[in-house]
Design a binder for these strands. Structure first.
Lengths: 180, 180
DNA sequence: GCCGAAGTAGACAATTCGGTCTACTTGTTT
DNA sequence: AAACAAGTAGACCGAATTGTCTACTTCGGC
């Protein structure tokens, strides 16, 4: 793994996630990372290519964190509880792997890139599919309905936390799913 | 109501909602609306002030549309059904008052404006609170739990529709809430 | 008609944007 | 040491950004 390339992706991801992709120009990324512009364009064809690399990195770290949090679940009830407690920790800045909570990087990115056919938008969609698959992997014989419910509530909890500043949604999701 | 001001807000709202606020500069709004720059700055102190006006207009039209869709509901079950069918229509571009579906303007705006203390972010939060109050107004003796569940699922359905391109979430939310 | 308000086209300013490039240095491999 | 890859500072480019301004026209009220 190339070290300069990694520094660029790390720096860009942090800045993009914190401020929004269209609010951070490449010159700011270069300034913070201390890397030369030509080096950036040596590794990435364009800003969009850098954005895609940040999405991939975020996808990877999010999914690794999620799998870690769902590991050792013994029942579906535990999967659900662990999932939403993980979300709660994320919203409360208690998931250092994910950084300071600034909503979902993939939702935010979808908001900033309006063309659904772009690689960037498609990657955001892909991420959501991957998260669903990970949850399914930890559940025992899950129905599609249960999976759907979990995913909708997960998305809802994230938006509630970020837009409405209501961090209590995960607890409510657990209760709701326990009545399912 | 001033006609030039209204044209500016209409035009800006359409462009912002379709492309994202940071992807549309004021020169583009002026070009599309055919209005002079000095006129824009006569009516608004800054781009941010124009953004806030678009949020207010969107908030108003969304809430009027929602109230219209929830009107005549006779039971809580009907409120829920009408709410999520309304969302379904919105996602499927069958709510002309709301324009072509491009996610939730308030979620998208929160993504683009990262400072939670800004008037713009606060307005997005205010909108979510208003929608919750409208739903509560149409429900008969709703518990806080029911209201919470409805709001979380509503947010989840919107994100599922926009990011994951899954338009079936509203139907699933109805089923889930019927088990509540 | 007069006057002030509202509106116009578009130049200007300083800055930023994403990307290309020159001329050079540093690091790695043979 | 030589050759090549990787990296550097930063100038340059054309375009775009937000906001200010000049000089003028149009509109509406009296």
């Amino acid at each position: 793994m190339n070290s300069k390339r990694q520094t660029l992706v790390d720096t860009a991801l942090n800045l993009f996630y914190e401020h929004g992709i269209n609010s951070i120009g490449i010159n700011q990324i270069l300034k913070v990372s201390g890397i030369a512009k030509k080096t950036l364009y040596h590794h990435f064809d364009s800003k969009d290519a850098l954005v895609l690399a940040t999405l991939e990195q975020r996808n990877h770290s999010f999914n690794e964190w999620l799998k870690h949090r769902l590991n050792h679940s013994k029942t579906n009830s535990e999967v659900i509880s662990n999932l939403f407690h993980a979300l709660q920790d994320w919203f409360s800045d208690k998931a250092p792997e994910l950084g300071k909570f600034r909503g979902c990087f993939f939702i935010n990115t979808s908001a900033e890139f309006s063309d659904p056919s772009s690689d960037i938008s498609k990657y955001c969609q892909y991420h959501k599919q991957q998260v669903r698959n990970i949850v399914a992997q930890y559940l025992f014989n899950p129905t599609e309905d249960l999976l759907d419910a979990i995913c909708i509530l997960k998305e809802g909890a994230i938006s509630m936390a970020y837009v409405a500043n209501d961090l209590s949604a995960p607890k409510k999701c657990i209760q709701l799913l326990n009545k399912f």
